[in-house]
Amino acid sequence: MSSEDFEPEIIAFLCNWCSYAGADLAGVSREQYPPNALNIKVMCSSRVSPEHVFESFHEGADAVLISGCHPGDCHYIDGNYKTMRKAELMKKMLDDFGINPQRLRLEWVSSAEGGKFAKVMEEFTEEIKELGPLDLNGTSLEGENDE
């Protein structure tokens, strides 16, 4: 697939209080950004487990975004610090799995940052377009029995 007609599939985990609200505000402000990401709302970014991220890649996502409140702003006091550390570990592990850690992005977007949300979407989509599709099956074993 040439990189020009490649449309990355992105899963975006957004926390309810800041980033989901920021995404809403981007709408209210009629920001325009590429439609590649599909948002999944969680109450707090700390709910996102590596399992969810790995499953996303395994199921065909080209990239995953986790977005929460800015450090110190977490609605649940300190959830985003946990997310920060988890994301760091996930990136290391993705690297070992042969997946470019750039495909996992952690962003702090507040509920007042509609513009930033749009910008993150735009940048991230561009970045992943440049990286190209994530091909997980090229080296997959025959007889592998995925569900």
């Binding site: 899963i11 999944i40 969680v42 109450m43 707090c44 700390s46 709910r47 996102v48 487990s49 399992e51 969810h52 499953e55 996303s56 199921e59 996502a61 609605h75 649940y76 959830g79 946990k82 988890k86």
Partner: peptide
């Protein structure tokens, strides 16, 4: 907040309304 559900190493904790099955279904 659900952070404990993400922490439990033996999957003993679920966050109602945001359980693994629901999140996984949305991903798939």
């Amino acid at each position: 907040c659900g952070s404990c559900a993400s922490v439990c190493p033996s999957n003993a904790i679920t966050q109602k309304g945001f359980d693994d099955d629901q999140i996984s279904a949305m991903i798939r």
